[in-house]
């Protein structure tokens, strides 16, 4: 009886540890995924920005491809990338403030603003350099509108 209890206790402990490990791995994977998402935004905006800054010759096809990618990225369902407990107070390796989880409707509205800015960029990118340049400011503003309240300063 005593031994069975002991076995049960050990099994329970192991199961709990495994659960914690799964939760940890799950949170870490989600953080990695959303940071990868941000990298993909940055890479595609970087193509557009290089043309806007004059570091790369303007090419309507390249610009449109980048803008299409960006718009596609904004349409991805990210809900699984932001699980509870993956904020900067709960874990290391993220700058996402817990406020995000407390202000969900606002976060969604800011996400939609990014989608709108990406759509405007898709319409503008192929229409000449000035048209592309004109859409960059609103795009940057939509990124910052979320980074302003919800991202911790760099450490």
């Amino acid at each position: 009886m005593k031994r069975r209890l002991k076995t049960l206790a050990t099994a329970t402990t192991l199961a709990l540890l495994a659960g914690a490990a799964f939760a940890d791995g799950h949170v870490n994977a989600a953080i990695k995924a959303r940071q990868a998402q941000m990298q993909l935004y940055a890479f595609n905006i970087g193509q557009l920005g290089a043309m806007a800054k004059g570091e790369m010759d303007y090419d309507a096809a390249v610009a449109s491809a980048a803008a299409n990618n960006l718009l596609t990225l904004t349409k991805m369902d990210q809900s699984a990338m932001w699980p509870g407990g993956s904020d900067s107070m709960s874990v290391d390796g993220t700058r996402a403030k817990p406020d995000m989880w407390d202000n969900f409707p606002d976060v969604m509205a800011k996400g939609k603003a990014l989608g709108d800015a990406a759509m405007a960029m898709q319409a503008a990118a192929g229409g000449g350099l000035d048209s592309l340049r004109g859409a960059m400011g609103a795009l940057g503003g939509s990124c910052s509108s979320c980074h302003k309240p919800y991202r911790e300063p760099e450490s």
Partner: peptide, 12 residues
């Protein structure tokens, strides 16, 4: 625009 050379954006 708020874009850094790496196309991160200004925050805070």
């Amino acid at each position: 625009t708020g874009f850094t050379p790496d196309y991160d954006s200004a925050g805070g």
